[in-house]
């Protein structure tokens, strides 16, 4: 459903992403792995139109998205949970979720989607009147995921959901993402530094190093790969 090929991008005149190609199928969880500064977030921002690609193509359900605005890409139902959550900290949990409804369709289905989000994250229902900035890190991440789900994604991109969270909360968030893919048929791109956890959830993975995709394979293949073991798993 998503086919990225030969993608190059960067900031100013500094190139960060070099000729990246990868694909995501329907209902699949794909992990994009790499250490800090490898270019993972830049890759996400390029796909979601927050940075214009310099070269290459991003085809989603047959439509070319490269060069389109972030809003236009959102209208194709590619929704991201950005790195660092990027919540509206002084707004209530409810208002944050509400902001996730960006189109006529998502606004019309807001009540239904809210029920869906509250079912997965009952804590958010309890805290819906509270300012998002006063929540714990894990709860804030739930709000960020919830806000993205309100946008009724076909492709959900999670950018480093584990950043700064306790391990058991990371497991919760990742298992919700996994269920979304397997039960709701939403494709998921999971961008992670925590490679062990990411590979446990993902069907396939790509390894990004210095802005280039250097390895790809199923989760089992990557777990057994000598380079991955040495460089990332510390085995």
């Amino acid at each position: 459903m998503l086919n990225v090929s030969g993608l190059c991008s960067g900031y100013g005149n500094v190139q960060i992403i070099w000729d990246a190609s990868f694909s995501v199928n329907d209902g699949e969880v794909v992990a994009i792995l790499g250490s800090n500064g490898a270019g993972k977030t830049t890759l996400v921002r390029t796909i979601t139109g927050m940075i214009r690609p310099w070269k290459g193509s991003v085809v989603f359900d047959g439509d070319e998205l490269a060069g389109k605005s972030s809003r236009a890409i959102l209208d194709h139902k590619i929704v991201q949970v950005p790195e660092g959550r990027q919540l509206f900290t002084e707004m209530s949990v409810y208002e944050n979720l509400e902001m996730g409804a960006y189109s006529k369709e998502t606004k019309a289905k807001l009540a239904e989607s809210l029920e869906f989000v509250y079912k997965w994250f009952p804590k958010l229902k309890e805290r819906r009147g509270q300012a998002a900035g006063t929540l714990s890190g894990g709860e804030q991440q739930m709000v960020a995921v919830g806000r993205a789900l309100i946008g009724l994604p076909k492709l959900l991109i999670l950018d480093e959901p584990s950043l700064g969270l306790a391990p058991n909360i990371v497991d919760d968030i990742l298992s919700v993402a996994h269920s979304m893919a397997k039960e709701q048929g939403i494709s998921v791109i999971l961008v992670e530094q925590d490679i062990t956890k990411a590979l446990r959830m993902a069907d396939r993975g790509y390894v990004v190093e210095n802005g280039k995709i250097t390895l790809e394979g199923t989760s089992e293949e990557l777990e057994k790969n000598e380079h991955v073991k040495k460089a990332y798993l510390g085995i």
Binding site: T48, M50, S70, R71, L74, D75, Q80, P82, R85, Q86, L87, F88, T89, E90, M91, M99, G100, Y102, S103, R147, G151
Partner: peptide, 14 residues
Amino acid sequence: RAVSQNPIGAEVVG
């Protein structure tokens, strides 16, 4: 308010 509190978040929600 959204743009004021978090411009990146605002872009993320379109």
